[in-house]
């Protein structure tokens, strides 16, 4: 079931078109990563989806409710975790949560629940200004979860946090998705996107230039997994044997060994190793190279993600 559907989103700031004709959907339980370099239009897109920013064109539906005509009802279904730490420093963690819980009409038991989820129960009575950076980030996320939204929008939620807090946030997001929440996630950390996202959309200069699963994007670019083998023995015979294995697309000499181009390295590797060992060739080392989103991103935008 589709939770978020946005189509033809467009927003101009003076003479600059920040977002142009961006469309995508997110299903229940799906985590969608929106990737793009700085200034690509990610935050503008998110701002339009959350109703913070008006659209020049296009429409956003949350659970079928149009943001343009029923903004209040649509916003009740959206949890928003902005990139900045949107907290009141002179209120305690619990007071921050209670304030937003009241705005969303969420019960007090939800405050205790989300404090527990993000691991801040013991520090709930401390002023937010006294929290560490990671704790502030977790509180920032907790506010977005208070009203059990159908769609959770996280804009760079792990920027500048310690590894422990980052892992906790990622685990929280995974659990929420497993419970059926639709998640829109932007990040600068490619490994996060690969760990979390079912699908990603690559946005550059305001345009959504590619969309799909990691594998779909990799294949669309003609990139494949590679297995490099350092071998002792008859390389000619090994080439013939390995070339006959299903999903092996090519075998070529590579130093004192061979390099295989395959469809899925993890799936192929057992068959490759079994074939070699039964043909008297000794494997000295194995190296698997999988094209990742960084590769895809660089290929599509000509830029590294952190640029």
């Amino acid at each position: 079931m589709t939770v978020l559907s946005c189509s033809g989103l467009r927003r101009r700031f003076d003479d600059v078109v920040a977002v142009d004709d961006v469309s995508f959907t997110i299903a229940e339980g799906e985590t969608y990563g929106l990737l793009g370099p700085n200034g690509a239009g990610k935050t503008t897109t998110i701002s339009m989806i959350t109703g913070v920013l008006e659209r020049d064109a296009g429409e956003v539906f949350v659970d079928g409710i149009a943001m343009s005509t029923h903004a209040i009802a649509a916003k009740r279904l959206v949890g928003y975790v902005p990139q900045e730490l949107a907290l009141y420093p002179d209120l305690t963690g619990r007071e921050n949560l209670r304030f937003f819980a009241n705005l969303y009409g969420a019960g007090r038991e939800r405050v205790d629940h989300v404090l527990d989820v993000v691991g801040l129960t013991e520090r709930a009575g401390d002023l937010a200004r006294e929290y560490s950076g990671g704790m502030k980030r977790r509180l920032n996320v907790a506010i977005g979860l208070l009203h059990e939204p159908r769609l959770l929008v996280l804009d760079e939620p792990t920027a500048g946090v310690d590894p422990q807090s980052r892992n906790q946030i990622i685990e929280n997001v995974r659990e929420l998705a497993a419970q059926g929440m639709a998640i829109l996630y932007t990040t600068h950390y490619m490994e996060e996107a690969e760990r979390l996202c079912d699908r990603v959309g690559v946005i550059d200069s305001g345009h959504l230039i590619a969309e799909g699963t990691r594998r779909e994007l990799v294949e669309r670019l003609g990139e494949r997994d590679r297995i490099s083998l350092l071998l002792d023995g008859d390389l000619g015979h090994a080439t013939a044997v390995l070339g006959a294995i299903a999903n092996v697309r090519g075998v070529a000499p590579h130093g004192q060994g061979l390099e295989l181009v395959v469809d899925d390295a993890r799936e192929c590797l057992p068959a490759v190793l079994a074939a070699i060992s039964t043909n008297g060739v000794v494997v000295r080392s194995v190296e698997v190279t999988e094209p990742n989103l960084e590769t895809v991103f660089l290929h599509l935008t000509g830029k590294a993600l952190r640029e």
Binding site: S47, T50, G51, V52, A71, I72, A73, K75, R76, V78, Y80, P82, Q83, E84, L85, A86, L87, Y88, P89, F100, L103, Y104, I143
Partner: peptide, 14 residues
């Protein structure tokens, strides 16, 4: 300045 305005604007509040 604190970023909380965006959060208020995203909330179901007029």
């Amino acid at each position: 300045r604190n970023g909380t305005l965006a959060r208020l604007l995203a909330a179901p509040v007029r």
